[in-house]
């Protein structure tokens, strides 16, 4: 059951990424390009995606997930080095390429060699991340 739900959720996600145009790096970089030919599409995608989730989060109150267990707890409102530096790194890579993790996966069958190289580099970054995170914590403790 959980595996089928995952497949359904992934299918909806992949379809949405394709239809919205978010696997097209021109549209994503266009949204970030406020000094150039600005493309507002991403704001509509984000807005459209948030709407069902506003309802879904409300539905989590006094309920349990369909397949049991608990809903994820809200994180305390805290800033730390990992959140800030990680998000800066992600934003830089996102701006350079126009790809974030979801679209990089969704476009793997039509993104050509570049798409495959991007995904491989992204996986390498993910492998390196735990060690980089520890380094960040060390430098935070030293400061």
């Amino acid at each position: 059951m959980r595996i089928l739900i995952s497949l359904l959720a992934g299918s909806l996600f992949g379809a949405g990424l394709l239809i919205s145009g978010m696997t097209d790096t021109t549209k994503v970089q266009g949204w970030l390009d406020v000094f150039g030919n600005w493309d507002p599409t991403l704001a509509f995608v984000m807005g459209g995606a948030i709407l069902p989730m506003l309802v879904a989060w409300r539905m989590t109150a006094h309920r349990k997930p369909l397949t049991g267990g608990q809903f994820p707890k809200a994180t305390p409102p805290q800033l730390d080095r990992r959140l800030v530096i990680g998000s800066i790194m992600f934003g830089m890579g996102w701006g350079l390429s126009g790809l974030c993790p979801g679209p990089a996966i969704a476009s793997i069958t039509y993104g050509g060699l570049g798409g495959i190289v991007f995904l491989a580099a992204m996986l390498a970054g993910m492998i390196a991340a735990p060690r980089l995170g520890v380094q960040l914590d060390r430098s935070a403790n030293a400061a």
Binding site: I5, I50, A56
Partner: peptide, 17 residues
């Protein structure tokens, strides 16, 4: 497309938590 993405996220949250 955004609505489909949000629907996928809702299915994943409400179904699998």
């Amino acid at each position: 497309g955004g609505l489909l993405i949000g629907l996928g996220a809702a299915v994943y949250l409400l179904g699998n938590g």
